[in-house]
Structure formats: structure tokens, C-alpha cells
Design a binder for these strands. Structure first.
Length: 275
DNA sequence: CTTTGCACCTGTTGGC
DNA sequence: TGCCAACAGGTGCAAA
């Protein structure tokens, strides 16, 4: 469910609540997530203080003194600050209690997410090592993108959703960014000119920034760390709008498939252009 | 190396 | 109303 803007929204909302807090107790109610939670997970966390809450790609990084807790929300995960006295939801799989009042609860009906401890340097962790640049960094620019797309015939939409090329762009924002710059999602990567690469890079950054500013997109159940929804869905131009009129030209938005993912686009604004 | 399709899991939705 | 197939924000992996 969460793409980069949603994860960043959770990070920003939880940061002040967890930083400086020491972990008092960890309860695992359901260890079978994407990777099973190890038996010593709780023991290794208790007594450690959260120094910083960072993010890399769609991973949340709880930086402790000598280790890092990695949390990925998968498709349906959420992490929320809660009163330990409140009854737990059936899909609350992990609870982290702190010295101060309040606890962090990890909820994930589909269990595609993960919680895992990583030793420094965390960037070398197997799950993080092969990740591409952050989309909002200067490292992700048109020169880089153009070079990456050479010799790639995969559809551009699938390429920008590939973690090794650039992180954080999921199905919603891939569709939105391609609409924003008027490129067909089906263009082979190598067919993009350097000018189109610049337009696409600019569109991705702009869409992600706007989504972060709106607190993310809530389609069904996304909530930030404090249990509140995001509002970017009000600014979606194509995602989920199949059959409705294009907000720019009035043409009917189409819903196709690309790489087993549903793909929304305006056939007029995003006509496949030769380059 | 690139590309494709599957697998992991539960919940919701839409068609018949 | 009920049943069942299809689909849902992600991503690592095997196989071609």
C-alpha cells in the first residue's frame, strides 16, 4: 500500500514520538511476516534507545545505538502510535512498548511487510544493498536516467518502478508521473530522448513532493503514525480513474496492464510519441 | 545481463 | 442473497 510519500509521512509523524525513547518490551503476536521474525528479536531490542528515525526507499529505519530496526509496510502494513491500554486489532502483529507512555503497533493484514534487525553498516544489508538512488536526491537526474534506459526495452512504467533504477516509485505515482509529463507508460525505456528523461525525472520529483505535502494517498486504509489518512487521492489525475474523463483534455482514462500491474493513462495526453 | 511470471497473504469488490 | 474469481499500495526470486 505505501509508496515513498506514505512511508515518509509515517516517518515524519512518528519521529518526535519515538526519538529518545528506550524500548522496554517487545511483543510478537504473529512472527510469520514476509521473513519470519527471529526468536531473539525482542531480546535484542529491549533496553535500546531510538536515536533517529530515518527512511531509505520504502524502509523505515529505527536507528538504535549499535543496530537498526528495519520496517517495511509491504502492501497493507501500518505502524501507529497507540495507548497500550487500547484493545489490539486482530492484525496487530508486533507491539513495541517504550519507557514513556505509549507504544508502537505494527498492523499488516496481508503480511507482506517485515521487521528485521540490521547491523551497521545498514546500507550494506542484503535488502538495501542493491537499491537505486532516492528519487528526490540530486543523484536521480536526467543524465542518470538516460544512461540507465539505454538498451532497456521494458516499458518505461515498469522501469521507474524497479528498485534498482530508482526507489520509492510504486504503482500510483508511476502512473501519475507519466501522466504529468505526457509520456505513454508503454514506451520502451530506450526510446526516451534525453529531453523526455528530464521531463520524467522532473515529473517524478514533483508528484512525490506534492504527495508528501498532502500526507500521502489513502485509497482504502493508509494511515500515518497517528492514525490519520492522507489527502493526495484528491489530486490523482489517472490512478483509479478508468472510464472517467481526463482532467486535462476530457478523453476517457484507460486501464491497461503492464508487467501484471494495472496501468492508468490518458490515450490522448499520453499518446506514444516517436523520439 | 535482461526480462517475465510467480509467490507470499488477507480482504474487498463486482459479476453472475 | 450468495458464491467465486479477480484484484489490491510491494518486491525478491526462479527460470527462460
Amino acid at each position: 500500500m505505501p509508496e515513498l510519500p506514505e512511508v515518509e509521512t509515517v516517518r515524519a509523524g512518528l519521529q518526535d514520538l519515538v526519538c529518545g525513547q528506550t524500548i522496554r518490551q517487545v511483543e510478537v503476536f504473529q512472527p510469520r511476516l514476509r521473513y519470519p521474525i527471529e526468536a531473539d528479536f525482542s531480546v535484542r531490542l529491549v533496553g535500546h534507545k531510538v536515536l533517529r528515525l530515518a527512511r531509505r526507499a520504502k524502509y523505515l529505519l529505527f536507528e538504535l545505538e549499535r543496530k537498526t530496526l528495519l520496517v517495511h509496510l509491504g502492501m497493507s502494513g501500518s505502524l501507529r502510535w497507540s495507548d497500550p491500554e487500547q484493545p489490539r486489532h486482530p492484525h496487530d502483529h508486533v507491539e513495541i512498548l517504550f519507557d514513556g507512555a505509549g507504544c508502537l503497533r505494527y498492523r499488516d493484514p496481508r503480511r507482506f511487510g517485515l521487521l528485521m534487525l540490521a547491523s551497521p553498516p545498514v546500507a550494506q544489508h542484503p535488502l538495501l544493498r542493491h537499491l537505486g538512488p532516492e528519487p528526490l536526491s540530486d543523484e536521480f537526474n536526467s543524465v542518470y536516467l538516460f544512461e540507465q534506459l539505454r538498451r532497456r526495452k521494458t516499458a518505461i512504467k515498469n522501469l521507474i518502478m524497479d528498485n534498482r533504477l530508482v526507489v520509492g516509485v510504486g504503482n500510483i505515482y508511476a502512473n501519475e508521473a507519466l501522466f504529468a509529463c505526457g509520456l505513454s507508460p508503454y514506451l520502451p525505456g530506450a526510446s526516451l530522448s534525453s529531453g523526455q528523461c528530464l521531463q520524467l525525472v522532473t515529473a517524478i520529483k514533483q508528484v512525490l513532493r506534492a504527495a508528501i505535502a498532502a500526507g500521502g494517498t489513502t485509497l482504502q486504509d493508509f494511515v500515518n503514525g497517528r492514525g490519520n489518512p492522507g489527502y493526495f487521492q484528491q489530486q490523482l489525475y489517472v490512478y483509479g480513474r478508468a472510464g472517467e474523463a481526463c482532467l486535462r483534455c476530457g478523453e476517457m482514462i484507460e486501464n491497461g496492464r503492464s508487467g501484471q500491474r494495472s496501468t492508468f493513462y490518458c490515450p490522448r495526453c499520453q499518446a506514444a510519441k516517436e523520439s
